[in-house]
């Protein structure tokens, strides 16, 4: 079903002898293929439009380098633009007064609870005194799930079944402060950005405690709705980063582009498996190649 973008572009440029520059017609033909590749990777329809316009602007009249054929030339520009859009890797910005508070938010089943444990393990290894907070009172056994994961890494879990999530967050924060905890990680319930009550609950949590990082956790397999999800959470909360999960599958992960484009929040982590060690910092080059479905080819072109 998915023909490689290089093959498609090579087909288009077959008749194109080296004319020195890429004409507008050449580039338009190429952009149709780029557009298709991005849509197949789940980049949002509107974002694809903006993106191809930017690429087109750069590509028209572009001098064809000696080392590259026109197809490679276009791919090089697309790739550079993708990397630009995806942005540099970013880590947690833990500054100011301790304890730092990290809140994980996102749709149902996106991977928040697992991500919370992964972050806790990582921060603990960095020498932080870490505490997890089980702030999902709705999903059956959500608390047990977090406790089970926390046990594997020896991190305490704060929970109180009698408290609403905002009150629980407040009490957890106070407890952490008194106990010399340096990082508090809140695992919240999955929710739709359209659910006003539950979005209000998140707002209330962020009023009760000084939040250092609000991380949106998104499943790499998500489709066109990624844009609305990101926009919805962004409107309600000061998001500070993206955690893209389940990247160990074969989803192309084009949602990352859409989310970056509409929110500007940096991508901070990738989830690469179910185990609590399966967390990686993201690499823009690799994610760009993945979105284009091109593997190592890009590396070769970059060197040319």
């Amino acid at each position: 079903m998915f023909e490689n973008l290089t093959e498609r572009l090579s087909g288009i440029f077959e008749n194109l002898r080296r004319r020195g520059r890429l004409s507008e017609a050449d580039v338009d033909a190429a952009m149709r293929e780029v557009r298709l590749a991005l849509l197949e990777a789940d980049v949002h329809y509107g974002v694809v439009k903006q993106f191809t316009n930017r690429v087109k602007e750069r590509a028209v009249g572009h001098d064809i380098s000696r080392a590259l054929n026109p197809a490679q030339q276009v791919i090089k520009i697309v790739n550079e633009e993708l990397i630009q859009t995806l942005g540099p890797p970013s880590s947690l910005q833990l500054k100011g007064e301790r304890p730092y508070v990290i809140v994980l938010v996102g749709l149902q089943g996106s991977g928040k609870t697992t991500a919370a444990a992964k972050l806790a393990k990582r921060l603990r290894a960095m020498g932080e005194r870490t505490m997890l907070v089980a702030a999902d009172p709705y999903r059956p056994a959500a608390v047990t799930q977090l406790q089970t994961l926390a046990e594997q890494i020896g991190v305490p879990v704060f929970h109180d079944a009698d408290l609403t999530p905002p009150k629980l967050a407040e009490k957890a924060y106070q407890t952490a402060r008194k106990g010399g905890v340096s990082v508090v990680i809140l695992d919240t319930a999955g929710r739709s950005q359209m659910d006003q009550d539950l979005m209000d609950e998140l707002r209330a949590i962020e009023k009760k405690v000084p939040v250092t990082e609000t991380i949106l956790v998104v499943d790499a397999m998500i489709g066109q709705e990624a844009l609305n999800v990101a926009q919805g959470f962004r409107q309600a909360l000061p998001l500070s980063g993206l955690f893209l999960t389940k990247i160990d599958g074969d989803a192309r992960g084009g949602a990352a582009i859409s989310i970056r484009e509409v929110t500007g929040i940096p991508i901070k982590f990738l989830g690469v498996g179910e185990s609590i060690d399966a967390i990686e910092e993201y690499n823009p080059d690799r994610l760009a190649s993945r979105i284009l479905g091109m593997g190592d080819l890009l590396g070769l072109i970059e060197k040319a």
């Binding site: 789940d42 089943g109 499943d219 397999m221 489709g223 709705e225």
Partner: peptide, 8 residues
């Protein structure tokens, strides 16, 4: 999951 894109 209905939110899944082309990977479905």
């Amino acid at each position: 999951d209905a939110t899944t894109g082309q990977n479905a």
